[in-house]
Design a protein around this nucleic acid. Sequence first.
RNA 1: GGAGCUGUGGUGUAGAUGGUUAACAUAUCGGCCUGUCAAGCCGAAGACCGCGGGUUCGAGUCCCGUCAGCUCCGCCA
Length: 590
Amino acid sequence: MDQAQKTHYCGKLSTGHVNRKVKLTGWVGKRRDHGGLIFIDLRDRSGQVQLVFDQRQGRELFNLAETLRGGYVVAAEGEILPRSPETINPSLPTGEIEVGVTSMEVLNISKTPPFYIEDNINVDENLRLRYRYLDLRRPEMLKRLQLRHRAVKLIRDYLDQYDFLEIETPFLTRSTPEGARDFLVPSRLQGGSFYALPQSPQLFKQLLMVSGIERYFQIARCFRDEDLRADRQPEFTQVDIETSFFSTENLFALTEGLVAELWKEIHGLEIKRPFTQMPYREAMNRFGTDKPDLRYGMELADLDQQARKSEFKVFQAALEKGGSVKGLRLPGGKRLSRKDLDDLTLQARQLGAKGLAWAYVEEEGWRSPISKFFAPPLIEEINRKMEAEAGDVLLFVADSWELSCAVLGHLRTKFAPDKLSDQPHFLWVVDFPLFHFNEEEQRYDSDHHPFTAPRAEDMPLLEGEPLSVRARAYDLVLDGVEIGGGSMRIHDSSTQARIFKMLGLTEEESAEKFGFLLDALTYGAPPHGGIALGLDRLVALLSGDESIRQVIPFPKTATASCLMTGAPSNVSEKQLEELRIIIEPEKDEK
RNA sequence: GGAGCUGUGGUGUAGAUGGUUAACAUAUCGGCCUGUCAAGCCGAAGACCGCGGGUUCGAGUCCCGUCAGCUCCGCCA
């Protein structure tokens, strides 16, 4: 440190420094002016300390102190003084001492900040984002940056200890089909061509395995041009890991160790290992989601057998079409009004269900528009199956299996208990399907990505029954949040070619788009696989934040703009000309 | 692409069913004040109510549109 500027951090001063001469620098916070006596809270990265200016100890310095305002940057020299017992402030770490200032220089003045530089402020997020540099001055925001730093450092140290090599991959790369929409960067040297920003370093990390790196990682920035959410930004950070000669279990153990260390370091919590594993199908069946929150029960009931015995046409029709009838019990649901249930029905419709059936469970049976379709013994049977008691409400959805599960799974989260365990519940969701059918495009899409290896025993089903093929893919889930995912990759070019073909890519197309990968796989690609953890989500979970925006220093808004810099913005005609880009006027659609 | 919520001095809010000086707190500025730390007391300044239309004698308030932020659905291999 430059001793001329600063000898101590404000927040680190304590009774141990009494009588010490110190030089401090920082920002003026609150000012308490008593006329002949002025108190200033001086704040720097470490915290704050009280400066005292006494008129009797020199007019010139005191006059300067009177000009101080919030946000001014000052360098002060003085002596650490103990406070008399009645003036000690126990709510402050530095509350037992203060600084008797002997000289001071104002390094910079400041306009009045647009909001208070302190914790727990209640301001429009607009304003915080526009003045993000001031927002980050607030202690709680600094704490988040520090937490993120600690997490990243721990991750680097942990992986280094297991021989992982941190390697950078390009931001300017080629656009590949599938997946999210790319952010494109026009090429000037080759006008009319575009780079794409990477949605993830997926192909590079696999190619590094062909290079013989064996253990790679990167704290990688990724870019996806899709609509935003509280937990989604157009650019985000991924802890990207790829390994050769690792079994899935090896990789799980490695990841579990990493996550456990994070929780231990940040929260002092011992995490039970190994983590629970659950097949995708089971997760959907029991919880109606591929990222179940295991901190509470309220599992879905499979009611196909009972529905078959009912007279209810809607249920019958769903079953005939190969669908499913699922049920969800809301304990104590009788407090829900008819209107509440109508709202739920509306929500179910918005999620894609054709409707939502419901029943108030009473001693004598069901109070429900559909009760007439169910004989009393059948009602009895369903109640038993769902462990329903008088006072509960039962919800039913009949649709395709996936939709029935998903709709009720969504409603389940709405009725989650208020009080949930503090102990984090980690879970591996495994055995995802390799493909799903894309109705819109009328073709199969990869559920994970096209480089995911199918389970060997499912390979014979690949062409005949593709939807039954399970992938060697996995997601890491924590309390209902997906914090990572990955897979074992295809490492032989013939399997990879078969998959591309299933995805509807002709040989020419795959050669054109992924030729470099297919080529690489023919040069002794080792068995490999990896995982990517969402760093922003991890840090947000560790800091207890709902939105990842809180742990991203300079985030974008829901329309992907930066309120501070004004990005995205227009560019000059000259820039456009160099890129041979012509901006078309906006289409007026009316 | 769709839905919902929000937008009033610098900041945070109040302004039932339209009615004329838009209220309060805090910050700001000035004065007083030697032990405050949410300092106190006195005083001053500060908003054409996101923007644009419309209805009305009259709009912060009602209607339409639009912009911005947030949340959700679609989307996100």
